[in-house]
Design a protein around this nucleic acid. Sequence first.
RNA 1: GGAGAGGUGCCGGAGCGGUUGAACGGGACGGUCUCGAAAACCGUUGAACUCUUUGAGUUCCCUGGGUUCGAAUCCCAGCCUCUCCGCCA
Length: 443
Amino acid sequence: MIDIKLIRQDPDRFKKAAKDKRFTCDIDVLCKLDEQRRSLQRELDQLKHQQNETGSQIALYKNPQGKWYQQALADGKSQTELKAEADKLLEQMTEIKARTKQLETEHREVSEQCDVLLLTVPQPADEGVPVGEDESDNVELRKMGQIPDFDFEPADHVNLMTKLGMLDVERGVKLAGTRNYVLCGEGAALHHAVLQLAMDLMVERGFIRLHVPVLVRDAMMVGTGYYPGGEEQAYRCERDEMSLVGTAEVPLTAYHCDEILREDELPRKYVALSPCFRREAGAAGKDTYGLYRIHAFDKVEQVIVCKNDEEESKRHHAEILQNAEDVLAKLELPYRVVDVCTGDLGQGQVQKFDIETWMPSRNSYGETHSASRFYEFQARRLKMRYRDGQKNIRFCHTLNNTGIASPRVLIALVENHQTADGKIQIPKGLQPYMGGRTVIGGN
RNA sequence: GGAGAGGUGCCGGAGCGGUUGAACGGGACGGUCUCGAAAACCGUUGAACUCUUUGAGUUCCCUGGGUUCGAAUCCCAGCCUCUCCGCCA
């Protein structure tokens, strides 16, 4: 969420942001509503003040034991006179109250409209982020690792894994419909191995491991910026007003919502392994083959909550990006890092780096990681704050990145490390997580 | 699922219709004392919003309604938490 004061100051900045990010939101209407809201509040505050004053005056008239009342009698007022004055005040009060009630209704309506609109305003991308329409305008920052040059016809991950008894798509679909799968034997082992490897690396680097709920209140989806707008992408339990998360980013980022932290508690670095659920609405017919686009998967997610300092945010961003790159290095996978363009950024993201890992069957790089920086966008929605050195209360900054997401990463892993005779070589870094084995298949 | 209890400030815990934004205690912070520390003593210590912003005002004691001139305090609904019994991974 954007600070309404900033929008007031410079509405054009946010109009431009909406245009660059290809979001629709009516800043002019918002500004008008905001102005209306404030003038109503001004009037309402005055009226309330009047109401409070009148109320406490009435109290004096209504309390014959009170000093003021006794004084009034001593000054020669009769009880009937006092009662008459009190009645007059009461009459005034009735009028004030009627007006207050009316204004309150108006104020509430305008405020609600204001809030709804405010939730739709996108955060401007950081300076330096490439302006563009869609992912084709993303800018490649670097390529790492060596794309394998097979001297045989490489198999795709479905064939390869099915043959090795690691994957059963057919029965996955039988159980749960399209975009579902069952990992079997070494396939399941490999899945757990890569997750564990990523988790260990993050913990080693100071991230606190959390095990979090994956069915969360809708308020957390709003707080992290997924709602409104992303309802169609999530499995939602309407009657409970809860949603299955598409990523542990949600519970991890919202962990400290409604809190005021101490500055010395920051930064908080969290990592969680969780299932992730995505409806993939609107992706019908896209990536229907194999393990690329599926409804449920597991992911190790890294989240950092830090001070309200853009430079510090950027440093952490580089750090969580490096963590993910190091995971891929351990898995000996070729990948590239792209700077995501404005048109491909989420509403709250100021910059996003995607890591795309080489997938031979796609003959291209496929997204496996996504590192986003939000500044205070999420924290403001989540009311996640801290007290700084000067005792000011400020909103935190938040960031997140994938550690590893499986089974999607297995596509790259098995395809890149396959051998001519249909086996899979286990990279050295992963071997300890696979019981010391060096190869899957044969033996 | 059945039966109770309760939701107040950073925490514990009063208040049960009229200067209560909230007693008291703890914690934290500042100060006195001390070579230093502890102890003791004194002081400070919630948030959001509005405006004519070194000041003034409004709102907030789980949430939303209601009663009243006036509610943390009374009434209704909802949400949540805890205890006991049953059931179960």
